[in-house]
């Protein structure tokens, strides 16, 4: 007990003795509470609720990449004609759909929005899945031109773009995700003629064929070589103004 008057006369305690342990426990409790809140917030931040990864959105027509790419073998560029040349990857116009579907499936109810769009001249309004914030400068063509494959950004372990029955966003496109590659693109870079090969990823069978063809042992060596061959200026890639201009 604290002596307040210096004469050893103690004053009645303000708090009962049990408060001491309560204070200790509430310090511990406060730490736990803060950690829980931070943990929950970060779980929410990384969850599909916020990132939209692997979440199929409602579309006017249930378009299947699986049917078109895996089953029918159509190249990405048949529909996405500007991926190699434009900053904007592009969604095909109704004309592209109708090139085949003027004959195939055109009497099906689910396909009606496309026929209506063709007849009225009003474009299809697809729900956008991969949308960079407006403060990000993003150029699609440079990534293709420097050997970053489609599946690197548009597929993940559970959802491969060529096998998607309904299309989903495959990566978070968080800044940290972008920087992972911008800091060291040699981890993922591939030969330019493998960019549209959906089976190529570091360490895969097709990648090993590339390693052999380039006379290197692994992705590390191939990456170092390609970064040099393709004039990727890695020291510039993390400059703020590369993506925020």
């Amino acid at each position: 007990m604290i002596s307040l008057n210096g004469k050893g006369n103690s004053v009645a305690p303000v708090f009962p003795p049990g408060v001491n342990s309560l204070v200790r426990w509430s310090i511990a409790g406060g730490v736990v509470l803060v950690l829980t809140v931070v943990g929950l917030a970060s779980a929410l931040y990384w969850s599909p609720l916020v990132t939209d990864v692997n979440v199929a959105k409602e579309q006017p027509v249930p378009f299947s990449h699986h049917r078109h790419v895996s089953a029918n073998g159509i190249d990405c560029r048949y529909c996405h004609t500007t991926v190699e040349t434009s900053s904007f990857a592009g969604i095909p116009p109704t004309e592209t759909c109708m090139t085949c579907h003027s004959v195939i499936l055109n009497d099906q109810e689910m396909f009606k929005p496309v026929v209506d769009s063709w007849e009225s001249g009003k474009p299809m309004e697809w729900t956008r899945l991969n949308d960079m914030p407006d403060f990000v400068y993003f150029n699609h063509s440079i990534h293709i031109d420097k050997g970053i494959g489609c599946n690197h950004c548009h597929s993940n372990e559970t959802a491969k773009i060529e096998d998607m029955r309904l299309t989903v966003k495959a990566q978070t496109f968080h800044m940290s995700w972008c920087l992972d590659c911008h800091k060291d693109p040699s981890q993922y870079i591939r030969p330019k003629d493998e960019v549209f090969n959906m089976d190529w990823e570091p360490g895969s069978v097709d990648a090993k064929n590339s390693y052999e063809a380039f006379g290197v042992a692994n992705q590390e060596e191939l990456g170092a070589k390609l970064v040099k061959d393709y004039n990727v200026e890695v020291e510039q890639l993390t400059n703020c103004s590369i993506c925020h201009r």
Partner: peptide, 19 residues
Amino acid sequence: AGHGAGHEADNHENKEEAK
């Protein structure tokens, strides 16, 4: 045994047969 490099069309056909 595996897919040859750079033969996208072939890969797709193989894949489909497998499925």
